[in-house]
Design a protein around this nucleic acid. Structure first.
Lengths: 224, 224
DNA sequence: CTGTTATTCGAACGAACGTTCGACTTAGGA
DNA sequence: TCCTAAGTCGAACGTTCGTTCGAATAACAG
């Protein structure tokens, strides 16, 4: 045996990481279901059967990518949040942390955002649990904004999920050569969200969209 | 022949529409690549080979769903926008139209949002062209907000794509029994966006996130 | 009735899929 | 040197895939 004890964090796990990187790229490009193990074999340079020495199934490949990415993001967020109490500052850190990782690991993030339903059973539960914790952190931050009067009465679930929508949708349009990088992007989105939920004196000009819109066309198609 | 002229908008096309509805549901549930023609055959009650009498390929099935959904949304938007000149009102109409259709046809919308890259060749181009027109309309509305001083200097591309992110992400979390319906949801998101891009006197409390955050942890992982 | 066209489907095609297996090579410990 | 375990891979497994084809049925025109 090459090592007396410990699971050897050397050559073997380094190769697994290499496989996971290539697998993430293939999953991002073709989707989980559309990608074949043979695609990953070709991309990584490891033979088809050789892959099964490191990972026991295609599902586990996806699971490892998702769980590692999510854990890293959550850990970094908690680190950056430590000691910061101002709710607006905490919100900016959440957005920056998310987008910074997002744009530095676009393939992994696309797999995270796009292959939400591809896992099953225990794998799925474990990823869902981490996601729940991440979402919970965001919720707490928003409640903090409310507590100090920087957010108006909004359904917190909708506010937070709208923020995640803004951020996660990026993988469909962002091109590194054209669009702003993480710093500028997270500044813009943080300010958009903070202004968006802010206790505005300059309130909505009218009560609701419904009342004003010409009701004809809208009502006419209610049945379609 | 059963009819003398015209492509008979009767039984035949009605069955095609039925097939497309079932196909949309299957694609939404399993993804385009993960769904098989056999799944659609089972769901629609039409035999495997019988499907090919109405649609020539799996790709065309996806294309028909996407093109029909997109055309309907764009047409309705242009109808609702007619005669409305106030930029904020136009923005509210855009959001309401999008979410209203979204929540009334969740399967089709999920296919639209999720299977962006699944089409190829000419099919892809045609769908991309309609999407470009839809995006262009949103851009114009935002420029209108700027013109009347209701939006600050923001990268319009980022502002508009953030709005689409908010709206399109809904398919990952909205549950009709729990969450607000289209009216309330579009009111909330419209106001969030309008406040978010508004010319705020109450500007950002500090210049940028970068300067304030404790640089240590962030800098230390720059290489990872 | 006969003939023609629209519609439907069971059966099969070759290709690609995820996974397994046994043989082979490599390398350090005795 | 021989032995053992880690690492690697070609070949094949049974299954499922998208698609095709020819025969069967249904419905109307003459």
């Amino acid at each position: 045996m090459p090592r007396a004890s410990a699971p050897d964090p050397g050559v073997a796990s380094r190769k697994l990481e290499m496989i996971l990187r290539h697998a993430a790229r293939v999953f991002a490009e073709k989707g989980y279901a559309g990608a074949s193990i043979r695609d990953i074999s070709r991309a990584s340079g490891v033979s088809l059967s050789g892959l099964y020495y490191y990972v026991e199934s295609k599902q586990k490949l996806l699971y490892l990518i998702q769980i590692h990415t999510f854990k890293t993001i959550l850990t970094r967020l908690q680190q950056d949040l430590e000691g910061i109490t101002d709710p607006a500052a905490r919100l900016r850190i959440l957005v920056h942390n998310h987008l910074d990782y997002f744009l530095q690991h676009p393939m992994e993030m696309k797999v995270l955002a796009h292959e939400d339903a591809a896992l099953a059973g225990e794998y799925r539960k474990e990823v869902a649990e981490i996601k729940r914790r991440y979402y919970g952190t965001a919720l707490e931050i928003f409640e903090g904004l409310r507590r100090v009067g920087q957010a108006r009465r909004l359904n917190p679930r909708i506010a937070v999920l709208s923020l995640f929508g803004m951020m996660n949708w990026i993988h469909t349009w962002h091109r590194a050569q054209v669009d702003p990088h993480a710093e500028a992007l997270s500044d813009v989105m943080s300010e958009m969200f903070l202004h968006g939920v802010m206790n505005g004196h300059r309130a909505a000009p009218e009560k609701s969209t419904r009342a004003r819109r010409s009701g004809l066309a809208v009502a006419a198609r209610a049945a379609s």
